[in-house]
């Protein structure tokens, strides 16, 4: 696995070395979230990643942030990262324009396992920016549509204007045998969709608990409630996968920051089969 990954990723002669790449496009998804498309052609050679993996993005002189890759894994030449502007580095990233250069190293971490979803229904449950690390999964599923059963996408956002990838959500809804349910925490009178937490969407779908794989990504509290709801619906918890977030400095298991009990989120995660971290989810301030 080590060699295989090394072949497909950036040169890893020094685990902490960053590589300059040019920004090809900036798209603002909402007031504080934007997508950078990076030009990966040039000196880097071929870059490939698995859905759910992340990169460390470096802003010259400012620092690094761990950002999931949110583009189609089968697309070559460019990479998308959807970024929530919250801290120093992400704010600096938000000020970048087309043609600017940032540093990239990666890809790091575990991925959403697609092999286990073969011939099964897939339920993607996500909230807020959690849709970004799951978008590569959705692309991959749709690319080989016939290999999977029903595809259900449940997505919760803060408000209608905060929703990510609005055009694509509609496009996915039109795909064969795909159900997309979107809900927001606050609506106004122009919003005809669902209002309420993302877990409430589960009551509107028929979940075949014997034959469904669930991929869950969002704020930790949202994932906890989602797991409770899935359990109530009879889904075996070893069919549930989730993506965790912690502070990351190195992304390769050296800096210690992202420890989550016995695990390192950066290299054991960010994607975990639920049983592996189930006991940890209830531990306060772990």
């Amino acid at each position: 696995m080590k060699d295989e990954l090394a072949n497909r990723s950036l040169p890893m002669s020094d685990a902490m070395m960053t590589y300059p790449v040019t920004i090809r496009k900036v798209i603002w998804e909402n007031d504080d979230t934007f997508t950078l498309t990076l030009d990966m052609n040039g000196t880097l050679g071929e870059f490939s990643f698995l859905p759910g993996q992340f990169n460390m993005l470096y802003v010259y002189g400012i620092g690094e942030a761990a950002i999931s890759i949110s583009s189609d894994p089968s697309r070559t030449g460019t990479l998308d990262h959807t970024i929530h502007r919250v801290g120093t580095v992400t704010t600096a990233l938000s000020q970048k324009k087309r043609g600017d250069v940032i540093g990239v190293r990666g890809p790091y971490g575990s991925s959403w396992p697609l092999d286990v979803a073969q011939k099964r229904d897939v339920c993607v449950i996500t909230g807020g920016i959690g849709l970004a690390p799951l978008r590569p999964v959705i692309y991959s599923l749709l690319k080989k549509r016939d290999e999977y059963g029903r595809i259900i996408i449940l997505y919760g956002g803060r408000s209608p204007l905060d929703l990510l990838y609005r055009v694509e959500l509609e496009r996915w809804e039109d795909a064969k045998n795909v159900e997309v349910l979107v809900t927001v925490d606050r609506g106004d009178s122009s919003w005809k969709g669902h209002i309420g937490v993302v877990t409430s969407l589960l009551s509107y779908i028929k979940l075949d608990s014997r034959n469904t794989i669930a991929y869950v990504c969002g704020p930790e509290i949202m994932m906890k409630y989602t797991i409770d709801e899935l359990e109530r619906r009879g889904l075996p918890l070893d069919r549930v996968y989730l993506s965790m977030e912690r502070n990351m400095k190195c992304a390769v298991g050296f800096c210690g920051h992202c420890q989550y009990g016995p695990t390192f989120i950066c290299k054991d995660g960010p994607v975990f089969p639920l049983p592996r971290i189930r006991p940890l989810l209830d531990r306060k301030e772990l």
Partner: peptide, 21 residues
């Protein structure tokens, strides 16, 4: 009530998930 509590947290307001900065 449980759902309302979650909604009250405004959990997408500042926090994010996946792997974020």
């Amino acid at each position: 009530l449980e759902a309302t509590r979650l909604q009250l947290l405004d959990m997408y307001g500042i926090t994010s998930s996946g792997v974020m900065p």
